[in-house]
Design a protein around this nucleic acid. Sequence first.
DNA 1: ATAAGTGCAAAAGTTTTGCAACAAG
DNA 2: CTTGTTGCAAAACTTTTGCACTTAT
Lengths: 136, 136
Amino acid sequence: MSDLLQRLRGRGWRLTSQRRVVAEVLDGDHVHLTADEVHLRAAARLPEISRATVYNTLGELVALGEVLEVSTVGRAKRYDPNARRPHQHLVCSGCGTVRDVHPAGDALGDLPETERFGFTVGSVEITYRGLCPACA
Amino acid sequence: MSDLLQRLRGRGWRLTSQRRVVAEVLDGDHVHLTADEVHLRAAARLPEISRATVYNTLGELVALGEVLEVSTVGRAKRYDPNARRPHQHLVCSGCGTVRDVHPAGDALGDLPETERFGFTVGSVEITYRGLCPACA
DNA sequence: ATAAGTGCAAAAGTTTTGCAACAAG
DNA sequence: CTTGTTGCAAAACTTTTGCACTTAT
């Protein structure tokens, strides 16, 4: 069983075949699927799985902090299972492909107090936009 | 006439009352309206303006580089007229409010060649996520 | 057994599109 | 005038929801 499933079970997550399949589909590096893509791949293994369950499961994984929702501009949300190691994204403006990147050192400094407008800042997200080799 | 309208006219943009109203609604700092909010405010001045025209106009302004689409996670896109001075966003995870911020110096270093996967990187986008005073 | 999870189908929210009527240059 | 723009209404897409049925524990 994957680390992910093991961790989830430890948290009292009820393990169903649908959830197992969704977790399996999300496994891996550089995986940034849309909900629909997850459903498509999950259905290949478990034909009767419903869209609603995929959405429910993805929402729960996000709430548990095991999966991240990737910001998009207009397109459908993408889900990133690599929530444990901080990283940034390189997004193709042509086809929407996303790659994880781990820029060298550099501490993307926190936002100075004077620029916070009273907000409580929880996370910083960096996205590099450009064109992938195929679209360029 | 605003700078924006003047620039657009210079580019051969046909100026209609609908477009003028959309441009006026977008004018200002810290403006990050959704298409629907733009339509609402535009309709207050020009009651017969249609949603389709608002979407068309916003899309054109984005294509012309005069307005930026702000990344969202799930919610409706927001449009940012402050496309000329580079800046970042502080987004409330509660209500979706967006504020422009201009972090001190710091050069958010370019992505090193070895991390580009063959992509042509055009822009870097930084988003600080947290809770605004009202939602905290 | 029982509480939680699932599937279905309908609805909600956002954005796009086709086309006839209209208006800016 | 001519071509680009608008409005309408319908459709496309993504995500959410209500409820009866099923299942993991």
